[in-house]
Design a protein around this nucleic acid. Structure first.
Lengths: 338, 338
DNA sequence: GCATAGGCGGAAAAGGTTTTCCGACCAAAG
DNA sequence: CTTTGGTCGGAAAACCTTTTCCGCCTATGC
C-alpha cells in the first residue's frame, strides 16, 4: 500500500471560493461569470470558466436554494405502492420535469392518511416547489390539504374539489373508442364485462359504452356484468354471458386482466376469436395483452400522457400560471388481433 | 369579496426567529430547546415547544443541510423505467430509508450512459448522502464511476467491481428451491424452460437446477430450453418438450411468464396439472401466478428484501460503516397449486 | 488638464439553522 | 464578603451562493 493511495483523501468538492482563487477574482465575480450576469469582460468570463472546468466546479444546489427559496424539486405522492397505474404516470411526470431541470421526491402513502400527512409535512419542510398526487384509482379523492404554500396537481385520481388542478383520463371516451371499433368491425350484439361497481372506472366505462352504443342505435347485450378485476372473474363471466346471451358477437371489457379471462373463457367454450366474437380490453397492459390469444385489442388510457400533462401543469403553476380545473387526457385504441 | 379573503396572504412559513420572538428567547436557544441540545431549564424548553407548536414551526431542511453537509436524501438510479423488478426493490428501499427519516430522489437512466452521468451529476450537486443503483437484469453492470464522494449500493444488478457493495438475489438457491419442491412432490423427470441464454439469470437458474438435481442423483430431462421471457415461447417450448421427452413429470421455468405459457401449453396438450406434471415458476408475479391454471407455485426472489437490505447497507455506509462486497438475499417458495 | 461617465469587478449582506464560545447570574463555600 | 463553580441562555460564526450596491480606473469630452 503506497502512501499516496493510503492518504488519498476524499477531495472536498470545489467551492466557488476555490474557483475564485484559481481565476484570481472574487467569489461574486465567479457567480456572475458562470451565470451570465453582471457586466464582465469576455476575457474574465473565459478565465473563470476555465478555472471552473479545471476544478470540476458546479454550484451547491442547497446553498442556492437557501437564498432563492426555490429548490427545483417537486414531491410525488402516490397512494399505492407504485402500481400498475402510478408507474406510467410517474414516468410521464419525470419526463416533463426533466426538461425543466427539476427532480422528484418519491413518497408512498399506501392510502394511509397519517402517512400522507407525514409525507406532506416532510415535503414542505424540504420546500418543494410543487406536489403531484398520483392515485391508483380514478375515484375522486379528498384534497391533500387546503391553503398549501405550493401548487398541487392531482393525476389520474382527481380531487373532489373542482377548483383543484386535476388531470384525468377520458373514461367515457375510452369506452367510446372500444365500442366504435367493435361496431365498425361489424359487431352488433355487444356485451360488457368489467370490475366492481364500487369503482368509478367500472361505472364510467359501462356508462360510456351504453352512450356510444346508443349513438349507433344499438344497446348493450344484456346488463353489464360487474365483478372483480381478475382473470378468474373474466372466465366465469364469459361462461355466464354465453348462457344468458348465446348469440353475442362482441365483448368490451373494463380492463385487460378481465379481457384476458374472457378471451380464455370464450375460446374454451368453442368460440373463435376474432371470427365469431370481437374483444376489446382497456389499459393496454402490454405483457398481458400481447400474450392473450388472440393478442388483445385494447384502449390505452394515455397514462404517460397524464403524467406529462400533470408535470407541465405543475411547472406552469410554479411559474405563476395556474390552470385550475379538471384536465382530460384522451386515450387511443391499440389494435391487435382480437 | 370581503377584505379578509382578498388579503389573505400566503402566510410565510414561520422561521426559528419567529418562534424565538414568541417565546422571548434567542434563536440559538430555540434550536437547542427543540433538538434537546445544550443546557436549558425544562421550563424554557416547554415554553419554546409551545411557541413552536403554536406557529407550526418546523425547521427548513435546506438551511440545516447547508450547515451540516448532510441532506438526508439519497438518489435512486434505475436503469429501466421502473419495471417489474425495480419497483419492489424501490419499495424496499423506501421502507428502509423511511425509518431513517430520509427521502429518495428518483432518476431513470433508461439504460443510457449519458443520461446516467447527467443524473449522477445532478445528484451530486444536490449533495445526496448516498446512491442506490437498481438494475432490471441480474447481469453485472459497470460501476457508476470511481472515486465518488458518497457511498453507492447496487441492487439486483451487481457491480462488476467486487469491491463495490451489491445486493443480489440467490439465483442458484432459487432454482434449488424449485427443484427440491418438485422432487419432494415425487417428480423425477424434470425439464427446464427459460429465457434467453444471454441473460445471466437464465444461465444461473439453469445451472442451479442442474446442481440441485445432481444432489438428488438426478439429471435434467433433456437440455434446458432457452428462448424468450414470453408466454408465447412457453407455449411453444411446452409442445416441443412433449415431443422430445414425452414422459416428463415436472417442469421448472425461468420465470412466471414463461411458466404461464408452459402451463397453457401442457394443459392444452391434454395433460393434467398438477396431477401429471408439476410446474414451478420464478418471480412470484402475483397477478400472473394467481390467474394461471392451476395457480402457479413459484419462487419469490425477495426483491423487496433486496431493496430493504440495499437501503440498510447504504444507511450504514453513510454512517461510516461500509460493508463492501456482494450480499446475497435468499428467496422463498410460494406454494400454490401447480 | 480636469471632470464626468461608463465599464468592470470587489465587498458585503442575505437566506435559516446549528453550534461553539462566552458571559451573566446565582448559590454555596471559604 | 469574596471567590469559585455551576447553570442557563445569548451572541456570533459558519455553511455556500447570489445579488446589490459601490468604488475604482480609464477614457472621453470640454
Amino acid at each position: 500500500m503506497t502512501d499516496s493511495t493510503a492518504s488519498r483523501a476524499m477531495t472536498r468538492r470545489a467551492g466557488i471560493a476555490d474557483v475564485a482563487a484559481l481565476a484570481g477574482v472574487s467569489p461574486g465575480t465567479v457567480s456572475k461569470a458562470l451565470n451570465g450576469r453582471g457586466s464582465l469582460r469576455e476575457e474574465t468570463r473565459a478565465r473563470v470558466r476555465a478555472a471552473a472546468d479545471e476544478l470540476g466546479f458546479s454550484p451547491s444546489t442547497v446553498a442556492r436554494s437557501l437564498l432563492s427559496g426555490r429548490t427545483f424539486t417537486v414531491g410525488i405522492i402516490t397512494t399505492d405502492s407504485y402500481g400498475r397505474f402510478s408507474i406510467p404516470v410517474m414516468r410521464g411526470v419525470e419526463d416533463s420535469l426533466g426538461v425543466g431541470e427539476m427532480d422528484a421526491f418519491l413518497c408512498d402513502s399506501r392510502d394511509d392518511p397519517i402517512r400522507e400527512r407525514h409525507h406532506l409535512r416532510k415535503l414542505l419542510d424540504r420546500q418543494v416547489d410543487g406536489i403531484i398526487v398520483a392515485g391508483r384509482r380514478t375515484d375522486a379523492r379528498r384534497p391533500l390539504s387546503d391553503d398549501l404554500p405550493v401548487p398541487v396537481v392531482y393525476a389520474f385520481a382527481r380531487s373532489t374539489d373542482p377548483q383543484d388542478c386535476s388531470v384525468v383520463s377520458d373514461e367515457r371516451g375510452a369506452a367510446r373508442l372500444a365500442i366504435e371499433h367493435l361496431v365498425k368491425t361489424g359487431r352488433r350484439r355487444i356485451a360488457h364485462i368489467t370490475g366492481p361497481q364500487s369503482h368509478a372506472s367500472a361505472r364510467e366505462r359501462a356508462a360510456g359504452a351504453a352512450e356510444a352504443l346508443a349513438e349507433f342505435g344499438l344497446e348493450l347485450a344484456g346488463d353489464p356484468l360487474f365483478g372483480g378485476w381478475t382473470e378468474v372473474w373474466g372466465r366465469f363471466a364469459a361462461a355466464q354471458l354465453l348462457r344468458s346471451v348465446p348469440d353475442i358477437d362482441g365483448v368490451f371489457c373494463g380492463n385487460d386482466v378481465v379481457a384476458r379471462g374472457v378471451a380464455d373463457g370464450l375460446r374454451e367454450s368453442g368460440l373463435n376469436l376474432p371470427e365469431q366474437v370481437g374483444l376489446v380490453g382497456t389499459d393496454n397492459w402490454a405483457v398481458l395483452a400481447e400474450a392473450a390469444r388472440p393478442p388483445l385489442t385494447t384502449v390505452d388510457l394515455g397514462l404517460e400522457e397524464i403524467g406529462r400533462r400533470a408535470g407541465d401543469l405543475l411547472l406552469a403553476a410554479i411559474d405563476g400560471n395556474p390552470a385550475p380545473g379538471t384536465h382530460v387526457v384522451h386515450g387511443h385504441l391499440v389494435v391487435r388481433e382480437s
